[in-house]
Design a protein around this nucleic acid. Structure first.
Lengths: 333, 333
DNA sequence: ACTCTCTCTGAAACCGCTTTCAGACATTGT
DNA sequence: ACAATGTCTGAAAGCGGTTTCAGAGAGAGT
């Protein structure tokens, strides 16, 4: 592998000059610049990243820690991050936390060892206080995506989940539904709590009393949604619509409804949340609240680049607004 | 940040000794080792990756180039890779090719610049010959996953797609179907051609004549599957079952069948391929041929580690066998 | 007691780049 | 013509590890 020395000798200049034309850090006369470029070309020289990083103490890479790489949602976030940083010639190092706080911690430490220039976290299991601690103690910029933590709000990119929950619920209210069930996510998760809050807020706005028996916890998974729906049906609470706190639990709920002989949307209307890939594929296609994962990943990456002083971007959106995606799972009552 | 010098001074030994206890590259007396470990602990010392890489010319990272990070299938591959290499303390650098050969090439070059220790490619657009060239010219180990290229077979981890196509088709034959349509992938892709070959082979085994009018090209996307199914219906070729070459095109086909007023599986049986996430979520749940993406990613990673001499693994499976996943989209005729 | 191993150890070179610093040269102003 | 300024340039000192090499000391064998 040719080194900068080889280039400098071939071009009959010093290594410093080669470095300067490579990085544009100082003016170089036209003739020397051309000689250097020719030599680089000729030798097919590629600077050694390791040496460069050692000298500059910059890795030109960003680390991303996500819950699960193979999930459509988190994959979109990663894709968003990637698109932004590759544009700046930076690489992306990934690791996943598998929704377990111990794994999240060790992955976090693991990524820090690599000394990426910044870190973007999308994790669920670690609680707010710990996360704040991590961010505070880190000597590199850390951004949080998909979650709002007030103490470090300026480092968070998040969706307005309260509004999202309200949008979903309002949509059902507007279609004439009054008995609206809710399949909630785990109370531990702020996202889930916020969506529930939005649900209650929309109900209150419409003067519909909040009825606890219409709410069941399903978690954010299909199976949980299935069981929550079974429970709601057993309770005999009598509802005409359901707002599931994410698309996966909506899919589970759909399955349970179908097994109970109820048709969607004819007998029961259903709204999901997230607008994952699967929302299209379900039958009926799921009306849901869209969360722009890729854009959120991009925003997080931009913020990271900004705190590195690489990006001079004017303003980056940190708070994203949910949008209702109307499909076929809601009928007017 | 403390350096190895700080550690050596605090422990009253040379840097060489610290390095030795860090890497276990040479025996160190018990007393010194303990002094060193204590100093490391005390200073919270973390070796500088850049310096280490520069000295050893190893990055302790593996690069993965995948078609699309946000796809469930490719995400699973990445997850498989990650699980294996993190176990060995190595990091994963990712980039995506977006199914465009120019992007694939530039991403490939981009990853090489980073000097990861090995590269794992899962890409569609670049053709076999170019890929062979890339692998041959690279000075680092390159593995291919999800694709078989005979010239570099030993670097490929792949599914036996011919058998897969045959399994799907045989399943329909066994259920009494004789007029079996096929929604093919793009002829450009070996995977697609192989699945078609498997389809024809199974038909031949059962003495069912191959009928060209029962085959339509749908590509590996939902929309393509939808249109291919429309075309098949228009042709009026009269079939009782369909083998779609992947789950996405099966989903599209399902939609078209439903719009045509045909019920699955009562009127038409349907088999997909890949066993993506969505196969569960479709209604009826899709019977499909499973491709073990995560395991294939793991295998590719193991092979990479083996060619780096890191892993002493005995034997790694490179050829994976497809498995039929029976669900609800097939009925006996 | 003396050599011969064997086990540890530290000094120093090296990995390939960036950056400082001082100086060479050309240009400008007076 | 001379000083003052500005533009380029190269030597050399890092960056923080690993590894070679030679040597010190301990134990074994005669």
């Amino acid at each position: 592998m040719p080194t900068i020395r080889d280039v400098s000798q071939l071009a009959k200049v010093s290594q410093a000059t080669v470095s300067r034309v490579l990085n544009g850090t100082a003016p170089v006369s036209r003739s020397k610049r051309e000689a250097v470029l020719a030599a680089i070309e000729r030798l097919a020289y590629q600077p050694n990243t390791f040496a460069r990083s050692l000298a500059t103490n910059r890795s030109h890479a960003i680390g991303a820690l996500v819950s699960e790489l193979s999930s459509a949602a988190y994959g979109d976030i990663v894709r968003g991050i990637e698109s932004v940083i590759e544009e700046r010639g930076m690489h992306l190092v990934v690791s996943s936390g598998h929704a377990r706080s111990d794994v999240e911690l060790s992955s976090f430490e693991f990524l820090k060892e690599r000394r990426t220039d910044a870190l973007i976290l999308q994790i669920d299991a670690t609680d707010d206080d710990d996360l704040v601690e991590w961010v505070r103690k880190s000597d590199l910029p850390v951004m949080i995506v998909g979650r709002l933590i007030h103490a470090i709000e300026e480092r968070c990119v998040y969706l307005d989940n309260v509004t999202g929950g309200a949008i979903a619920t309002r949509h059902l209210l507007e279609r004439g539904h009054r008995r609206i069930a809710h399949i909630a996510g785990l109370k531990r998760l702020a996202d889930a709590r916020d969506r529930l809050t939005g649900y209650r807020r929309a109900l209150a706005e419409a003067d519909v009393a909040y009825d606890e028996s219409l709410v069941a916890e399903g978690g954010f998974i299909e199976d949980g949604g299935y069981r929550a729906m079974e429970e709601l049906l057993e309770r005999g609470a009598g509802f005409t619509a359901v707002f599931a706190s994410n698309d996966q639990s909506a899919a589970g709920a759909l399955k349970a409804l179908r097994q109970a002989g109820l048709r969607v949307p004819d007998d029961v209307s259903l709204v999901g949340f997230d607008d994952l890939f699967i929302a299209h594929y379900l039958h009926p296609a799921l009306t849901t609240v869209r969360q722009p994962f890729a854009e959120m990943g991009q925003a997080a990456a931009r913020l990271a680049l900004m705190s590195l002083g690489i990006d001079e971007e004017k303003e980056v959106t940190r708070r994203f607004e949910p949008v209702l995606m109307e499909r076929d799972s809601v009928a007017a009552r």
